[in-house]
């Protein structure tokens, strides 16, 4: 329950609004700056004092990106690896989450919990350095299917932890009723449990998808030009001899604006799901 506003003085209210407005502005400014830079002409980008409003917007930076076949492929790769790995993580993760939700004790539960926590807690490089060696040895470096399963694996802990409480929340009686009606275990899962857990699965898919969309270390080390994703593409601007911030800002905007919008639109669900998953993850 939120505290009632009754006891607040008008001055207090103004202060409250002022603090929150300033904080919100600071939090949002980098996003605003990225987007506004992306629709500026090169010359406006470097103008001092900085041009905050009142420049002539240009879509040149975006059209330049979308005319580049490389960029089209980058976007396609990002979408493929994000969607593919999310589906795999949800399939594998929902089964494990169901098991963890329903069986308090089973052979391998403790080792599984330990593994998931370590996978979540270990710095990515620890895994990526030997993986690079292993994958190079078997010729799987820079292959899209490999990246998809790797993405799915690193996001498994998160997927499992977010979904477990959703499965726990499904009343056991419903499953039992289905069993009385003669359904098999798999049918129960498919026709009763899964549909009820679907909102949770969808929310999980959202988070896992976002994590996959943002993933950087895996594709930059283990990927290739053919599998280049958006974060890798964007990071290329740091070392490229480019004197132009426009396309960079446009590519960055394309990466972050969908996420920002998603956060705004799906806020309620995000808050609920994340606070559940984040507690475990």
């Amino acid at each position: 329950m939120a505290r009632r506003a009754g006891g607040r003085s008008p001055l207090g209210s103004i202060g409250l609004y002022a603090v929150l407005t300033v904080t919100s502005a600071v939090m949002l400014f980098p996003i605003f700056w990225t987007v506004s830079t992306s629709i500026k002409d090169r010359v406006d980008t470097f103008r001092l004092p900085p041009v905050i409003v009142g420049f002539t917007p240009t879509w040149k930076n975006y059209s330049q990106l979308f005319e580049d076949p490389t960029f089209i492929r980058v976007m396609a790769n990002t979408i493929i690896v994000t969607a593919g790995s999310t589906i795999v993580a949800l399939l594998i993760g929902s089964l494990a989450a169901y098991a963890l939700a329903r069986a308090p004790r089973f052979r391998g539960r403790r080792p599984l919990e330990v593994s998931l926590i370590l996978l979540r807690a270990m710095p990515g490089v620890v895994l990526v350095v030997p993986l690079y060696d292993v994958l190079a040895g078997v010729g799987l470096l820079g292959k899209m299917p490999m990246l998809i399963v790797l993405y799915a694996m690193v996001n498994l802990p998160f997927a499992i932890w977010i979904m477990t409480p959703y499965f726990q929340g499904i009343p056991m009686e419903l499953e039992e009723a289905a069993v009385i009606d003669g359904a098999s275990g798999a049918q129960v899962f498919r026709t009763v449990v899964f549909p009820l857990a679907l909102p949770g699965v969808v929310a999980t898919g959202l988070f896992v998808g976002l994590l996959a969309w943002n993933e950087f270390l895996l594709p930059v080390v283990l990927g290739s030009e053919a599998t280049k994703t958006l974060p890798v593409f964007i990071s290329g601007f740091v070392s490229a001899r480019t004197l132009d911030w426009g396309p960079l800002a446009a590519a960055s905007s394309l990466a972050i604006v969908p996420i920002a919008l998603l956060t705004v639109v799906m806020q309620g669900r995000l808050v609920r799901g994340l606070s559940q998953g984040a507690v475990k993850g």
Partner: peptide
């Protein structure tokens, strides 16, 4: 039994990916 089959299918998917 169905559950096991679906597990097998998913495991197979992973292996197939590799």
């Amino acid at each position: 039994t169905m559950t096991r089959r679906s597990i097998a299918a998913i495991a197979g998917l992973a292996v197939a990916g590799l």
